[in-house]
Nucleic acid binder design. Sequence first.
DNA 1: ATACACGTTGTTAGT
DNA 2: TACTAACAACGTGTA
Length: 645
Amino acid sequence: MPKPRVIYWFRTDLRLHDSPALRAALDLKPECLYLIWTWDPHYVYRARVGPNRWQFLLDCQNDLSKSITKLNSKSKLFLIREAPQTLLPKLFKAWKITHLVFEKDTDAYASERDSKVMELAKEAGVEVVVRMGRTLYDPDELVKENKGKPTMSITQVQAAGSKIGDIARPIPAPKSLPDPGDTTLDFEQDKPTQDPDINAKQRDADEGSYNALSGPNGDFAVPTMEELGLKPATTPHRGGETIALKMLDDIIANEDYTATFEKPKTAPTAFAPQATTLLSPHLHFGSLSCREFYWRVQDVVSAYKGKASQPPTSLTGQLLFRDMYFGAQASLGYSFGQTYNNSHCRFIPWHLPSTIDTSTSLITGSYQIDSAQANQYFIRWREGRTGFPWIDALMRQLKLEGWIHHLGRHAVACFLTRGGCYVDWERGAEVFEEWLIDHEAACNIGNWQWLSCTAFYSMFYRCYSPIAFPKKWDKNGLFVKRYIPELANYPAKYIYEPWKAPIADQKKCGTLVKGDGSTSEDREGKFKTYPKPMFDFPSQREKCIQGMKNAYHIGLYGNDKKVLDGTWRELFSDGAEGPTGGVDELPGAMVREEATGEEDIGEQKVPKDAEVTKKGAKTSTTKAGHKRDASQGTLDNMVTRKKKK
DNA sequence: ATACACGTTGTTAGT
DNA sequence: TACTAACAACGTGTA
């Protein structure tokens, strides 16, 4: 019987340590093993990826390739510049492949892509071997053990996980690797269409990575930032398994830190060093295995003499949240990434809603400007010019370094959505997708839903203040001063609310609080400037909470008929408190046509114990005089739940 | 049916 | 400094 000729296809597993799929490939005892990466135009042109994450990916690939060559001087990471769907069938033939091996990926695009590839392999008579390795538990299994439903709470994950069984111990890295076979590519390259290039703005030169299948030198090398035409990275954080394992060693060496870690007690304002591990980008690219991390930590915790922290706040608990989001994504597919058509995401009539392609029910990547003011809020938030130093420092750190502390993400996400700007969480998620070096679709989407109180979490009245919250961690504002040099001379008293500083003090500090933040111009004569706050936070917060309360009572989810067909507007047109402002200023613009008012309202959810309060009666004065069905009566008024106790 | 505890990470004013 | 209660109040799971 001929020995197997195997392609190992690297994707989100850029490592040699603890790779169950790579182990499976080696267990085939192949005659030759091709270790490849397919340069997928979906990632190059269609996913939002900024220069910092590009750099991290290239770092990981170069490091892996070097490690491979150390084990076998004839081998490396063979990077081939074509989409996997067209490339792999040609490789099967050219290289006489018998087996294709890769790690399972449950991301919406990835699972679609892999189904197609498996189909093509079957046609070519190539056996496919898939192993789970990206998460602690196989997301599909997790969902199955959760009664087939998406994992929406950490207790569900723990219950389902315990049914699956113990988390596997890490597999050591291989000590040797088989030779690759002949690497001649005697076929034409299918060049992708660049348009639409969602990453055009990331480039300052032409994208040119598809010049030849095996690269400009024919050596299958990893492309450079220059080949991709990308602007240079600005992040200090670098990728690669070598760095990841060293970082893990350093963390594990500190037993107290490892065993007593409690996420809510780590300071989002710490920057030298940061308060958390910075391992998230390595988990994303697979330059570190989550099981390697889990067991290295768990062994320290088991041997720890003092009182160790527990999930979910402990270090291993962080991995459970990751698994929770992967489970939700695996179950919900593309709809997980948006409100529209999402059965588990609440509908809130945010400003700047996504435009929907009604033929696919998917968001298009662009959005509708229903409010010029909200759009200005959004731009100022994104560019770090809101006039709230805590928010601006975080957003500037994010743009520059591609990483901010988890609680910092909470602060800016709450501020953009339910606790400030009342802007759609999908806008924020897109910015994070572009800028984060650790962007993990499942976790990013899940966390934005969490913070916007549209899924996973619901206590919208718990709202982060851009002044009180950072004070708790950094009384002197050192974090703000690092990322906003204009405020470097401001005293602690005014550092989170510089607009309160008297003009004389502002002049003494060399920076005037002036302007609406519409440009990055920050000089006026001999003074620097820093923008005025874009709104009064306490009153804006109050409006948002009222808007959330109203939307919660109406109780629509993303897959509700009224959301899908646009008739949700009827429910919000009267008495809708909050920044959306009722009939005169319709909230959101999710669909292409106005509501007809003739739709069935049978699915409407009315709280059983709803009653009209004094406050509600006051705000519910009908302005437009719409004719209403009887069942909508209670909704037209501001209803509230009966107070318990 | 109803009550109650709980939920990774709020804020403010008190002790 | 470290805790607590009140604030006004969400959904889910369990008893």
